[in-house]
Simulated scan of single mutants.
Amino acid sequence: MTLSHATLVLLLVARIHGTDAAVRAAAKRCAKRLPRSKRDVMFKVVDSRSPLALVDYLADEL
């Protein structure tokens, strides 16, 4: 899995489920499959107070 794939997963989960819990769970699953050097973005989403808002912000900046 690449960082692009993980980002796409987060965007889709945010769009389909629309909850902080779903986004946080998806970020945890993706972090396990990414190389260690690319996991920091996923951990920031997991540790965020509002993961859904953070993913929305990331989507706006793409």
Rank of each mutant, 00 (worst) to 15 (best):
A25Q: 14
E61C: 06
R33N: 05
L62H: 13
L52H: 04
L11E: 08
A31T: 07
L58Y: 12
D56A: 14
D60I: 03
R24Y: 02
R24V: 04
D40V: 03
L12Y: 14
R49Q: 15
A26Y: 00
A21K: 09
K38Q: 14
K32P: 03
R24M: 03
L34I: 01
A59H: 07
K38I: 00
M42K: 01
R15F: 13
P51C: 09
D40W: 07
L12F: 11
F43S: 05
R29L: 08
S37N: 13
I16E: 11
R36K: 12
K44A: 12
K38Y: 06
A21Y: 04
L11V: 06
M1E: 01
P51G: 10
L10D: 03
V55M: 10
H5K: 09
K38T: 12
R24E: 08
P35R: 09
V13T: 15
R36M: 07
A22T: 10
R33G: 08
G18W: 06
L54K: 06
R36D: 11
R49P: 15
L10V: 11
R15M: 11
R39T: 10
L52C: 06
L12G: 10
A14C: 12
C30D: 04
M1Q: 03
V13R: 09
T19P: 12
H17T: 14
V55Q: 07
L52S: 04
L11H: 08
A6E: 00
